[in-house]
Design a protein around this nucleic acid. Sequence first.
DNA 1: ACTGAAACCCATATCTT
DNA 2: AAGATATGGGTTTCAGT
Lengths: 148, 148
Amino acid sequence: MTVNLDDVDWAIIEQFQREARISVSELARRVSLSASAAAERVRRLETTGVITGYHAAVDLTKIGYPLLAVVRLKYPGNRHQPLRRLLEERHEILECLRTTGEDCYTLKVAATSMEHLEALVDELAGFGSTTTGVVYRQTLPHRGPARP
Amino acid sequence: MTVNLDDVDWAIIEQFQREARISVSELARRVSLSASAAAERVRRLETTGVITGYHAAVDLTKIGYPLLAVVRLKYPGNRHQPLRRLLEERHEILECLRTTGEDCYTLKVAATSMEHLEALVDELAGFGSTTTGVVYRQTLPHRGPARP
DNA sequence: ACTGAAACCCATATCTT
DNA sequence: AAGATATGGGTTTCAGT
């Protein structure tokens, strides 16, 4: 499942994790390659599924979601379909991780207000018992792991 | 703190959250705007801090990090500097949220192996008591909230 | 697998409405 | 805020190494 990546591949991944909208020729300059070679590398990283996409990061507060919360969900039973449907519908749920341990799901949700957060948690509480923590601050900027 | 966004701004944000590397002219086509108008909109979203960056998403398994875990950390006291330093250094820590509630920090970490994960948790355990859950699956793809 | 050249496409700036 | 136009730079393809 692991793909063999050399130094240049890692350099490309690093650059694109920080600034995904630089041009391929700019990328080529930064990793010391010709533009066509860099374009080919990027294509390979995309087709092999190493790079899965490019996404804009937004300031949630500025777009009207000043609250961020972590909701842990103890989910009894094994009927996961209804929860999946909720995740599809509610775009306020930004991330959902199913984990080992007592709290089966850890969710990251954005809310417009405490009332909104309350309503979201109520919806989730329909599936099991929840533990909610409101996020003071996101300590890290967006980034990925380095070369292992 | 909130910025006023109209339908076109939201359409641009949506497009860039899904595909951040499309050209401005392609974006213009998708949101029914001229290229120069679209470019101007994007510039405004960037300078007002609505869009904070563009980032490549990678398949962690394919780059050698087959394990993902959620670590919750009970952090007694108020000396947060040493933890901040660890976050800077250890790029395996992908995200760190400081929250209300008993578990002050919720971290998302990537690991190359169980041994590696154990070492990471040991490092974190130096700061307080930890609760770790290994992630079975990330249920949602990368996305952002919709218009409130 | 990378380079370099050519043709084509896109981005950016400026001006006009 | 949108459209037109021009120019410089970026992307893509292909032959050559």
